[in-house]
Structures are given as C-alpha cells and as structure tokens.
Design a protein around this nucleic acid. Structure first.
Lengths: 222, 222
DNA sequence: ACTGTCTTTGCGTTTTACCGCAAGTTGATT
DNA sequence: AATCAACTTGCGGTAAAACGCAAAGACAGT
C-alpha cells in the first residue's frame, strides 16, 4: 500500500473525507494542500528530503478565493508534477465531466485514476487507491460511461482538433490547406479538410459548422 | 441599515469573512446557507414568519460536493427569489467575470450590487451594503471596468442573441427568416440577418461566423 | 417639418462552403 | 500477394453565405 499521500483539495469537508478514507486503508502519512502552488512545493520539498510522496490525489478546479495563484488548476499541477516526479501515481477526484477534458488528462498525462465526484464515491476512492497500488488504472463508472458513451471523441485526431481550433480562431476554411502546408502537417488538401469536417459533424451530430464549433467548445475539446 | 441578512456561500472561510464584515456594520441578525436550496427555504420560511430578510448576499457558483441539488447556481436562486420576495435587495459576490453572465444578472434580474471576488474586496462589500441600503446600485470597480471596457455587449439585442443561439443550435442562416416570421419577431429578412451578423462580427472583432460563435460562447452570451 | 444617422429590405454578384464522383493511396488482414 | 476498408485528393457542380449597392423606413435632434 502507499506510504505517503498528498491530497490537493480546496474544500475542507471533502479534504477531511479523503483523509479518513486513507486512514481506513492504514495510510497514516498524509499531507493536504488547498491549492496547487502549495502542493507543488510540498512535492518538491519531499523529493529533496528523499522522502517523496507515492500517491497524489487531486481535484481539478480550485476557487481563487482571496489570493492569486501561480498554478490555477489541477491540470497545470499535474503537468508540473510529471516533470519533477514522473513516477508519482496520480488520482484525479473532480466534478469535471466534460469528455474533452477528461480524455486529455488520460491521453496526455496518463493519469492513474479518475473519480467523478458524486454521491457515495468513497467506495470508488478506496477501489481506486487499491487498484492503482497494483499498478493498474482505475476510472469510476461515471467516467467509464462517459468514455464509452461518447466514443466519438476517440475518433478525433490531433489535426482534427487543429482544424477546429483554427476555425474557432477566425481563419477561413479555404486557408487551412496553406496553414497545414506551412507547418508540414499531412492530409491538408482542401478536399481533405472538407472531408474531415464532414466526418466531425457526423461524429458530434452537428448539422452546421457553427453548431460543430459550439459543441466542441461545450465538451471542452477546444 | 439592514436588519436581517442572508449569506449564501459554500466556502466556509468566505462565509465567515462576510459575517464579520456584517457585524462590523452592526448587523447582528445574520443567517448563512452553503447551498441555494437551503437558502430559498430560509427565505420562504422567513416570509411566512413575517420576519423577512431585507438583504441577500449570494455567490453564483457552488460546488456540488456530495449531494445533488435542486437549484444549482446563484442565478437560479435569484430567479426564484424575485418570484417569492421581489423587494429583497440582492448583492452578488462572485468570481464570475464573463461579461455575458454579469450583464444578464444586471439586466434581467436588476440585482442591486455586484462585487467581483478578488483581493481586498472587504471594502467593496462594506460600500456595497451601505450603497444598496440607500436604494442605490453598487458595482465593484472590476465589474464597472468590465461593463465599460466591453460596451460591445450592450449593442447586442435580444434578437441578435437569438440569431446566435439558433446558429449554435444547428439551423442554417437561410432558415432564420422563417423562424422569425413564425414567432412574429421583427426585422427578420434574410438580408437583415446577414446585416446583423456582419455587425456582430464587427462588435466582437470576429472574422468568420465560426469564430463569432466561439467568442460569444466564451463570454457567456449564449 | 427637416436633417442626418442607423436600420431594414431586395436584388444581384462574388466568395465560400458543401458534396458527389472517381481515381489513387495507405495500411491492416487474410 | 490479394483484398478490403478507410483516407486522400482533384474536379466540377450546387448550395449557402457574404457583400456592394440602392431605395425605403425608423427615429432622434434641431
């Protein structure tokens, strides 16, 4: 089982709840931060003292409250953590359920567990900790459903996302081919862009381009 | 000065801070809720007991935490409050700074004060309470700047917003005229829709329709 | 009542987006 | 090596959107 765990959560009641769950699992060396900056400092300090954390449980969104912070969200914290201590296991505990955001955390940062906040999630947390401890991934049912139900987002490539971002940033569809060429991105012919956009509309059930942009913004893809 | 105040805020530390500010202003009859459902119940109960609140200070966004709620945000609370006790003064205290959302609260619900959460906002709160007590409106500097700096949103009419919503929902531009006609909305000719969209692009600095949709979603207009 | 500005509307043109077809390419499977 | 499905690309046609122009209407200020 994990020996030293860091909880990053700004809501006291939830932070306390997590602590008691960890204690139930006989984990005693627990630290907690209510913001990402402080969390990163703790992780760095523990590394220097040669007593590193072996598990990080973090929320994604934090209320700014009365102070400005450097790292404003869990995603930024995770990005930094992956740089300073890549082997640290990470479990995300968040209400974030926009498939685009969830997928990014799984794909880009390869996080070890994801639990959607909801009712009766303490069992989920225990299972997640135990599963991750065994070098396996754990995602709560809500998240699995989300990933399964909308397999659409899995069909979206990096260059698809680029097309959408470019369009949302104001460039015309017919200008995309030259942008692709300039950046040595393959499959950038005018007709291919059209084809991909048609596919994306089908994938997301959009009738028009403006609606497609609206949808991919809603789900956090761009 | 106000006699009976309700604070609706889910972050304990902030709720406590607000209480102490109110006490500084010699307001002793203070109640607090950490969620909107409970707040509405309290307002209703106070009305029945003929001891109504005379000021409501509320946040806008609430973390769902461990339970599902009926009213999920401050906006919904305000909407209900306006129905049950229209004369209740309302001050919003939130980090929400998307002009579209702020503007809606001012225009649609005619709230009495808006304070953007930030650093050193306790002075703002005192001023807001005193100003609102004198039957005047109070908006913090951040909000005034926001309203001033982006006067663009003031130029957007209800039917403009409707056009944008329709486009974001997937209907084609050329179908909008009949939709306007069916709903007896004036200025709905094809050419007028085109004209309004051109204006909207200018107002928001968008080059293309997809970008326009992206922008108005970002600022919370739709 | 007059003036000027902004909006609405129609018409026609240009530009852009959309899409069918067909040929070629790629990559995985058998 | 053969096959198949999915992707890429070009060509060309159609549909939609964007826009200039001009006339008519609305509205505020003088």
């Amino acid at each position: 089982m994990f020996k030293k765990v860091l909880i990053v959560e700004d809501q006291q009641s939830i932070s306390k709840g997590l602590k008691s769950i960890l204690k139930d699992l006989n984990i005693d060396n627990i630290e907690a931060s209510d913001n990402c900056d402080n969390a990163l400092l703790k992780i760095r300090a523990s590394l220097i003292k040669k007593k590193p954390f072996d598990l990080l449980i973090t929320d994604l969104s934090f209320r700014e409250g009365y102070h400005l912070s450097n790292l404003s969200c869990g995603e930024e914290l995770i990005e930094q953590v992956k740089k300073v201590q890549p082997n640290l296991k990470i479990i995300v505990f968040s209400i974030e359920n926009r498939i685009g955001k969830v997928k990014k955390l799984l794909d880009k940062y390869d996080i070890d567990g994801y639990i959607a906040k909801g009712r009766r999630e303490s069992e989920d947390i225990k299972k997640a900790i135990q599963t991750v401890c065994q070098e396996r991934k754990y995602y709560s049912n809500t998240i699995l459903t989300l990933l399964k139900g909308s397999n659409n987002i899995s069909q979206v490539s990096t260059s698809d996302t680029l097309i959408l971002k470019l369009l949302a940033s104001g460039i015309k569809q017919k200008q995309i081919p030259e942008h692709f060429k300039d950046n040595n991105i393959p499959s950038g012919s005018k007709r291919s862009i059209e084809y991909r956009l048609q596919e994306l509309k089908t994938i997301f059930g959009a009738e028009t381009l403006p609606q497609l942009i609206s949808i991919v913004k809603d789900i956090g893809l761009i």
